[in-house]
Each structure stands twice: as C-alpha cells, then as structure tokens.
Write a protein that binds this DNA or RNA. Structure first.
Lengths: 146, 146
DNA sequence: GTATTCTTGAGCAATTTGCTCTACTATGGC
DNA sequence: GCCATAGTAGAGCAAATTGCTCAAGAATAC
C-alpha cells in the first residue's frame, strides 16, 4: 500500500490550482515550476485528472487548467482514486485469486472491504480548501511574530 | 495506494497460523492449500515475515511455521508494513523530489505524514485475534440456526 | 494565420509483481 | 549415519507499472 508520485504530484498540482481558484486558468508550465513537477509528466497527470472530472482545461493562449469544482468539494479521496486507482484488495483488483477455505476467504475479503471504507472516510475528511486554509493560517501566524 | 497480493496472501497465511496458535508448527504446504496461495510464492512471503519477526520456522520433519507472538499482538499494520513496505509518501520513498515553492512543498509533506499516522492507527486497531474471534462468532451464530 | 497552450499516443529504461525452479541446509527418526 | 521431510536462498522470468521524454496534432485568442 503505497502512494506513488502520481498521487503526490497530483495533489500538489491541485493544491496549486486551489490557491488560484476563481482567478482563471493556470498554465501547466507554471504549476510545474512552482510545484517542482516534470512538465511532461504533469501534463499526463492533468489529463487523467480532467478525465476524472476534477479539473477543466482550456487550450490556446491564456488557456490552462482550473478546478472543475470548488476546493471544498474536492477531497484527498477524489485525488487518490483518480490517480492511483483502487486502494485495497476487494475493489476488483484481485478477483483472480484462487479461493481457499471459503469461511476464511470471505472473512479476509470483508476485512479489506471494511478497511477500504474506513480509509476512504479518512481521506474524505480533508479537502483542498482545508489545505488552503492551513496555508493561510500559517502565513497569518508568521505575520504576528514579525 | 494499493495493497498487492503480498499483503493479501500474507494476511491470509497469518490468519491461518493464528487459528492454530499454540498447537505446534504448521507446514507451508497446508497453509497454501487451505488459503489458496501458490506454494512457491507463499514460501517467499513466509521468509519475509520471519525476517520481520512475525513468525518462527522450524525445519525438518514435523517442522513448519508458527506465530512468533500471540495473535492479539499482531496487527494489520505489522503485516502490511512487513510485506508491502512504506505506506505513503514521506517515509523515505520520495525523498528525491525536486522541491517547488517551499511553503507548499512542506505543507503537502505534512499532509502525507499525518495521513500515514492516521492510517497506521486504523490498521493497528485490528489484530489477528480479532479475526479469529470474528470467525468463532460467525460459526457460533450458524450453530444456532441449525 | 500564427503563436500559444493543451491533447494524444508512442516509446523507453527501471522497478515491481507474481510467480517457478533448482539447489541447499537443517532436523527428526530409524 | 542415513534418509525423508521441511524450510531457506537465490536465480530467473514474463507481465505490469512507474516515471518519465518526445513528437505530432488540435483548439483558440489575437
């Protein structure tokens, strides 16, 4: 169970967009530079996220990408499922298993299933807007000490 | 973030051992047959789990594998970390990232770190003994209806 | 119509996954 | 001591995934 650079890069990119939500499209090159993501790879991830309905993209000069929904409606769960795919056994990933003793097999399947639900609940609790607020709070507290 | 067959097979094998805890060694061939795991692959996973300190193994006739600790002290977290390795960015997996804007970079790092802690807490709540109890309860309730 | 920006798909080296197979080592029992 | 039984170790291997790059194409603003 590992989050690869896809999920990591993807979250960073969406966070970048969230901070500029409502201010028009943001170009992938700017995202790449600010967030330290290889541009060609980022472009791929952006396409994946557009197909997942997380962002919208405009071509041509002054084009770019923007969140398809407001930052408080996009959760870590949305990002990770879009980019990393299914999270645990029991969501179609491992249907090819040779079943053993049925009671044991079913019990373990249920454990994965419940675990997945719990983890998704956890992931659903954090939104892009939460991240933006955290950054603002942090910037604010720095101001006090200056 | 995906649990591969390693974690799945590994949990099934340990669950098999947990149900026979205290009754001497269990041979890998029996585990493989009961749990529907390819024997050669299972043998590899058993070695990994032994190196992680989850099981102990005895060679020779009447040899086999057994839990190194009691089932209530072995959690899903133990199993998954032993077999799947680090769970999320921020545990050494992705140190090679080119950092972007430092505030954003650090904030996302923290998010992964907190998330990992929360997921590990979740995983730590379920032990092998919990699974055994669940199976016994289930068997018990079936008895009532016969 | 041209510069800009996203889109699509190919390609590719490195790593991981999910195995198998062979050889080796340890141990219990005769 | 021999031998059958088990685990141990490591090589090998096809297929999939990761983490990219690159080139060609399509849409749009000016």
């Amino acid at each position: 169970m590992r989050i690869s650079s896809k999920g990591d890069y993807g979250l960073r990119a969406l966070f970048d967009l969230a901070q500029r939500y409502g201010k028009g499209p943001v170009q992938s090159e700017d995202i790449a530079r600010r967030q330290g993501i290889p541009i060609n790879y980022l472009n791929q991830l952006l396409i994946t996220m557009r197909r997942a309905g997380l962002i919208e993209s405009l071509r041509g000069p002054q084009g770019g990408h923007m969140l398809a929904r407001s930052p408080e409606t996009i959760t870590l769960r949305d990002v990770l499922i879009a980019l990393e795919g299914p999270l645990l056994p029991g969501d179609g990933t491992r249907e090819d298993l040779i079943p053993g003793v049925p009671e044991d097999h079913d019990l373990i399947d249920e454990v994965w299933s419940e675990l997945r639900a719990q983890i998704e609940t956890l992931l659903s609790r954090t939104t892009l807007d939460d991240l933006c607020q955290r950054k603002r709070q942090r910037a604010g507290s720095v101001m006090y000490y200056i």
